[in-house]
């Protein structure tokens, strides 16, 4: 009885201290504050009276039952039944552990790469969905933004090649590039047969190898957008592969009269190396982006 009265007084003291420390801050409409005080009261009551229960048990109760056979230096053990709750929990945990080791962890474990793959799959699906049917104008706009991010570091924001540091994409081809390709040959774009160098280029009009003068004339002619002097050389030497209009032939040679999206896509996939310098392949663009860049670059020289 004394213990119970002492416990009640102790709870009162604890609550008094709590009230002194925090009570002043609790206003009339402070529900949370009141709830916290209630919680403090409950905690104190439960803690104190549970302790008292066990203290009483130690004071009054005596153990009994059948002793186990084993005896450790005079310390014995009673044969008690497993508590039901404990036994059920033990069995359930065992079953869960078997499932977790064999199925749960191996099949559902977190993986950073797995999360990345999911992220990419979701993005790719929504990207393909969103940009499935772009009209020509939007495609060019998309190409422009990809160009600014991926291409402008070399070709410049205006696609002018930054004073000769890269190809000027506002026109199809420069004179020095034509000359370089004729003199050295070219095999940039993965065609089955490479373009031969000048020792393999015949002018069908004259029946002889292309001459220095002819190279100069035809280079100017091509760089000029297939205009001016040099058409006869072009038709005699270059047209066999590049077509009489210079627009190229499928599987044989690219267009040198104008850009087209397929040509740009081929360059992006293969990279190229010419008189200006080397361009790496841009594998990190997806098909839609390559199409868009193709549309943008084509639109520049139109």
């Amino acid at each position: 009885m004394k213990l119970w009265i002492g416990g009640a007084i102790f709870v009162a003291i604890l609550m008094g201290i709590t009230w002194m420390m925090a009570g002043g801050d609790i206003g009339a409409n402070d529900t949370m504050g009141s709830l916290a005080m209630l919680g403090a009261l409950a905690t104190a009551v439960i803690a104190i009276f549970v302790s008292i229960k066990y203290v009483r048990q130690i004071q009054e109760e005596k153990a009994g039952g059948e002793l186990a056979d084993e005896n450790w230096d005079g310390i014995g053990e009673y044969k008690n039944e497993l508590p039901m709750g404990w036994a059920v929990l033990f069995l359930a945990t065992t079953v869960w552990a078997v499932w977790y080791y064999l199925v749960g962890y191996p099949l559902n474990a977190y993986s950073q790469i797995g999360e990345y793959n999911e992220e990419v799959a979701i993005h790719d699906a929504s990207f393909a969905d969103k940009h499935a049917n772009l009209d020509a104008q939007t495609l060019v706009k998309m190409g422009e933004s990809v160009f600014i991010v991926q291409c402008s570091q070399c070709h410049g924001l205006a696609a002018d090649g930054i004073d000769g540091k890269a190809a000027n994409l506002n026109k199809r081809i420069e004179e020095k590039s034509v000359r370089h390709a004729i003199v050295n040959g070219a095999n940039n774009l993965g065609y089955a047969a490479p373009m031969p160098d000048r020792n393999g280029l015949f002018n069908m009009n004259t029946g002889a190898l292309i001459t220095d003068a002819e190279i100069a004339t035809v280079s100017k002619y091509v760089a000029n957008g297939m205009k001016g002097a040099g058409e006869d050389v072009f038709q005699g030497t270059c047209a066999a592969c590049h077509g009489s209009d210079g627009k190229g032939m499928e599987f044989v040679a690219p267009s040198i009269a104008d850009f087209n999206p397929e040509l740009v896509a081929t360059v992006l996939k293969h990279g190229k190396k010419g008189v200006i310098g080397a361009m790496p392949a841009f594998d990190l663009l997806n098909e839609q982006q390559i199409k868009a860049v193709g549309a943008y670059v084509t639109s520049l020289s139109k």
Binding site: G156, K165, G277, A278, M279, A281, D283
Partner: peptide
């Protein structure tokens, strides 16, 4: 190395702002 080439690095190390405004 996949996206830039020798001549670009040359231009860029000489004058970075010249190629990347």
């Amino acid at each position: 190395g996949n996206v830039r080439t020798t001549d670009w690095h040359e231009n860029h190390m000489w004058d970075p702002a010249g190629v990347v405004p």
